[in-house]
Amino acid sequence: MDTSRRNFIKNTGLGLSAAVLFPHLFSCESSKKADGPFANVGLQLFTLRDQLAQDAQLVLKNVSTIGYSHVETFGVDLAKNSFWNLTVPELKKILDDNNLKTHSGHYDMSTYLSRNHTDKENIEHYIEIAHELGQKYVVAPVTPMFDLNNFKVEDYQYAAEQLNKAGEMSKKAGIKIAYHNHFWEFRTFPNGTRGLDILLAFTEPDLVDFELDLFWIERSGLSPQSYFEKFPNRFPMWHLKDIDKKFVEPILGPEVDKEDVLEIITNRIKYTEVGTGTVDFINIAQEANKSGLQYAFVEQDMIYSDDKYASIKKSYDYVQKYLVK
Rank of each mutant, 00 (worst) to 15 (best):
R115Y: 02
H239E: 09
Q57N: 13
P141W: 03
T111C: 14
E218L: 14
E255Y: 11
A296C: 10
T272P: 00
N233Y: 11
A34T: 06
W84P: 00
V256M: 14
I312S: 01
L86A: 05
N40C: 11
L133H: 04
L14T: 05
E72K: 12
F215N: 08
K93S: 10
Q286H: 11
Q286C: 09
M145V: 08
S220D: 14
H239A: 05
I312Y: 03
T65A: 15
V153E: 15
S170A: 15
E218T: 15
K152Q: 15
P232I: 14
Q57S: 12
S4K: 06
G253A: 09
M302W: 03
R187L: 03
Q135Y: 08
T278P: 04
V319I: 15
C28P: 02
W238D: 02
E185P: 09
G105D: 01
E218N: 15
S114D: 14
H180R: 11
M302D: 08
L78G: 03
K246W: 02
G36H: 07
S315F: 00
G167H: 08
L148V: 08
L199C: 04
F146S: 14
E124F: 00
L21M: 12
T111L: 06
I282F: 00
E259L: 06
A173G: 08
L323M: 13
N164H: 05
V298I: 15
F146P: 01
G134K: 06
M237G: 02
E72A: 09
F247R: 10
S170D: 08
G42P: 03
V153Y: 13
T272D: 03
K152E: 14
N191T: 12
V248N: 08
K33T: 10
N85C: 02
L214S: 09
D257M: 06
E218G: 11
S114N: 11
G292K: 03
H180A: 08
T203D: 10
K33H: 07
P23A: 13
S220Q: 13
G174P: 00
G134N: 07
V71T: 12
K10W: 09
F202D: 12
L60D: 04
K172N: 03
F38I: 10
T118V: 06
I265V: 11
I66N: 11
H239T: 08
N116H: 13
T73G: 00
L16K: 07
S17V: 12
D206Y: 00
L133P: 09
T118I: 09
V298D: 04
T111K: 15
N81Y: 07
Y318R: 09
A166P: 02
K176H: 10
K246V: 05
A56C: 10
M169A: 10
A159G: 02
S30Q: 12
F281T: 05
R219H: 11
Y107E: 04
F46A: 10
N116W: 07
